[in-house]
Design a protein around this nucleic acid. Structure first.
Lengths: 222, 222
DNA sequence: CCATCAAGTAACTGTTTGGTTACTGACCGG
DNA sequence: CCGGTCAGTAACCAAACAGTTACTTGATGG
């Protein structure tokens, strides 16, 4: 839950007692509480009071650290993007065969989405508002290029060895992977309701995971 | 429910002048205004005052016809589902070859999504709330079965003639088509921002349309 | 031509909301 | 051990909000 174990300011007194005043912990608690609140209720539905209460603090601190509701929301969104892109960097999809690389990226993306529904939710909220806050972000210029660069390289290797078609486009491949994962998870509630099948059932989740890999590879195989 | 339409005795006067008092028109205006307001702002962000103003009426009428904000929202959502499923019924995807049938469904779905972004937006909002209102709906039980029935039949024909693989599942095929269309359109704002390519550009839209058909068929072809 | 009743209006109400103010108390250098 | 600084608290405020009340307007049947 809390991140009290990480990176203390080193100037700790010899005794280990819990501080009543811990700026970093309070800040982190607000950010985490805000992530949940925004993910569950969207921008319009999120309540500042609820965030403060969830964080075990009060509104004054929230405004102290983040300015206002909108800036707090932007921090949450940026942090969420940093989260997936950071995890993605540790993949090294170019280490094995091109086909295994693509399959690995597809699996990673699906599983990341599955474990971080709050990320999908935040994306949905941000898109509802036509990227109004994301476009103001200055932290996110170079964050996403790494993915495309690495994906381009893997696809090019596959094209040279003749396993991928020449028309395979890096962005299209990523959008395909992301589409299949995003829609299934973020829309599971309406889909389960109207089609009468529980999409969250482990068996169905497994089947869809295999489906994503199969579809992605089938769409670019020579 | 309310049954406002049933007792209309069609006793219109000979002159065709526009009525100042027109219940059906007012009701329809509220529903359309609400559709836009909910689609643009979500459930939490939508304002009852804004809906009344957009409809050219006032809140009293809105509460008169629809009860409260939540019931109005449910009406909007139901109407949106009726819209796509009604248009879908006129497709008759079984009339041509199985491959053409699937391609036709994919094209229809993509183009419908493209022309009705408010439908995608409403789905996003409803899923944010885990289908809270949709599950209460009594009008939507039999609405969606037609699609699956017809799709099953097309796939079965394709399997018999050997053009489709046996593993092709109707729901999975539809989810694939819907995923690729939904994600591209509903997430275009964040995607265009982070990847620096305008996804709404006509050339890119056309390319994605062809991509959807290609991917869908590639994933089920024998 | 008037009684009736539904359509339509606008001002109002109690509550919730984002944001602020005035204050308390823990920590640290000198 | 004192005083300034800043994390933290709670009461507060004006605006915005969903929903209501009291009222007016206009079509229509008798």
């Amino acid at each position: 839950m809390d991140g009290s174990g990480e990176k203390k300011p080193a100037k700790r007194r010899s005794q280990e007692r819990v501080l009543q005043r811990d700026p970093e912990r309070t800040r982190a608690a607000i950010l985490e509480a805000a992530t949940r609140e925004f993910a569950e209720n969207g921008m319009g539905g999120a309540r500042v009071d609820a965030i403060a209460e969830r964080a075990g603090t009060n509104k004054r601190m929230l405004y102290h650290y983040f300015g206002d509701k909108e800036q707090l929301y932007l921090h949450v969104l940026e942090e969420a993007y940093v989260g997936i892109r950071t995890a993605e960097r540790e993949l090294h999809i170019g280490d094995r065969s091109p086909e295994e690389g693509i399959a690995e990226l597809a699996l990673f993306t699906w599983r990341y989405f599955l474990r971080h529904p709050e990320f999908l939710s935040l994306l949905g909220t941000e898109n509802l508002h036509r990227a109004r806050w994301l476009r103001q972000s200055v932290r996110l210029k170079e964050l996403h290029s790494h993915l495309i660069v690495e994906l381009t390289e893997v696809l090019d290797r596959g094209k040279k060895t003749g396993v991928f078609i020449d028309a395979a486009d890096p962005l299209n491949v990523y959008l395909t992977i992301a589409s299949l994962g995003y829609f299934y998870i973020s829309n599971q509630y309406t889909l389960s309701t109207i089609f009468g099948r529980d999409l969250a059932d482990p068996g169905n989740l497994d089947a869809w995971e295999r489906h994503i890999v199969h579809v992605t590879l089938a769409s670019i195989k020579a």
